[in-house]
């Protein structure tokens, strides 16, 4: 399988130019990759009450909250610059945005600690237990 020879390089020098961007995880699939008036519509109409945020998207009620990246972790958005034509070629991605917290939204359900994304944030700490060096 020759595609195993190709690597995807992360152009780390691009972190310096990366903008800090707010990121939102939505409970729906939007069939679109590209620009959107997020601040004009979503941010401008978001209501903050205590720990819960509310907004609506396409007429549907969303409830959400902010989640911080686990300690020692940074949020990155990687973007591929020139997609190669074949599987065999090396690829390059650059860091287009960075973030230290994200907002996730549920459809109608208030955010809570049983939300899968909240539970998924357990992973880095558990990975540390599984993968950290063992003392002799």
């Amino acid at each position: 399988m020759s595609c195993n020879t190709s690597v995807t390089r992360v152009d780390v020098s691009s972190v310096g130019q990366a903008q800090r961007a707010p990121v939102h995880l939505l409970p729906c699939e939007i069939e679109h990759n590209g620009p959107a008036q997020v601040s004009q519509y979503l941010t401008a109409t978001t209501k903050d009450c205590k720990l819960e945020k509310t907004v609506s998207f396409r007429g549907r009620g969303l409830k959400g909250q902010e989640l911080s990246c686990p300690q020692g972790y940074t949020g990155l958005v990687l973007k591929e610059i020139n997609k190669p034509g074949s599987d065999q070629e090396d690829r390059t991605v650059k860091v287009s945005s960075v973030f230290d917290k994200l907002t996730y939204w549920n459809l109608e359900t208030p955010p809570n600690s049983d939300d899968t994304i909240v539970m998924a944030m357990d992973w880095p700490e558990l990975a540390e237990a599984i993968h950290g060096p063992v003392e002799d």
Binding site: C28, I30, H32, Y41, S56, G59, L107
Partner: peptide, 25 residues
């Protein structure tokens, strides 16, 4: 904008025709 009732078929049809498709669970 939230001024519009999304649940009206007029609004829904316009979005279906001119907007990006969105899927919910």
């Amino acid at each position: 904008p939230q001024f519009v009732r999304f649940s009206w078929s007029t609004a829904q049809t316009l979005i279906d025709n001119k907007g990006v498709t969105v899927h919910w669970d």
